[in-house]
Amino acid sequence: MSLRYLLQRLSTLLLVLFGVSVVAFSIQPLVPGSPARVRLGVQATEENVRILEEQMGLNRPLPVQYADWVGGIVLRGDFGDSLITRTSITDEIVRRLPATLALAGVALLIGLLIALPLGITSALKPGGKRDLSASVVSQIGVSIPDFWMGILLILLFAETLGWLPSSGYEPISEGFFAWGRHVLLPALTAGLISGSIMTRFVRSALLEVLGMDYVRTARAKGVGPRKVLTKHVLRNAAISIVTIIGLQMATLLSSVVVVEIIFAWPGLGSLALTSTLQRDYPVLQAALLMAAVAFTVINLLTDLSYVLLDPSIEYA
């Protein structure tokens, strides 16, 4: 892998971020409603709306607002202040990022713990009893809406059994145990769904490889089933599996909004939702940018991992 390749990928990242920032900004005039009205509520007078919009800088031409905003990020690493709470957006992102990473990371782990064994066992004997039950389980997992799953898990583990807290987040600095107790239910909610999706991908990736000539050859040579699986099948299916893991991770980072709302989880997803509802444009734009960064970085990592998995892949 060359330095040139890395630089090329980084410049793509910047280009993507630029594109996202322009799109995130252009939404503003298209959406009805104004943050000034949200702050004033039903008691808004036209005069107060005008004064507040001026104070918020919303009546300046859009390119000027854009330049001001991007300038703040590039020059000072500062996303500005929320129009609604008037608190620092950078602080907010820094505070919420670990929560989002924890939720997505643990959810992915749970998802993999489900998807790998289920996917492998069902691919080994397609159409068998295990395959059938695995596909029933994953079908159920895919069909259950996350808000419902979340509520069911809360009813069972928090209310009935009293083992886990019903909602909320503890940073890992408060101790691993407290952190783990809080992350488990939301991660389980997102992870069960994510695991169900991944099960089907793992199964089909393995089936594809299992049908290859070299697998048949290996079997004909008398290689045992376990060795066929580990040496020939999994290694060759790894690229497809890593690709789907990358996509799932990116999805988890940006799409766990509902899970975050249900579990009062202070992540970037609930921040994006609240700021959308309140028309808190700078916060929303910051959240969108962070999601874009997450997507591109994870894509890059996925691509880079191909090199490790398949020596024939080389990035020049």
Partner: peptide, 18 residues
């Protein structure tokens, strides 16, 4: 004062003693 957006989760939090 814990901000819990969903009303049914507020109820669960109360009932489970959180």
């Amino acid at each position: 004062l814990r901000i819990i957006p969903d009303d049914s989760v507020k109820r669960s939090a109360l009932v489970s003693g959180d």
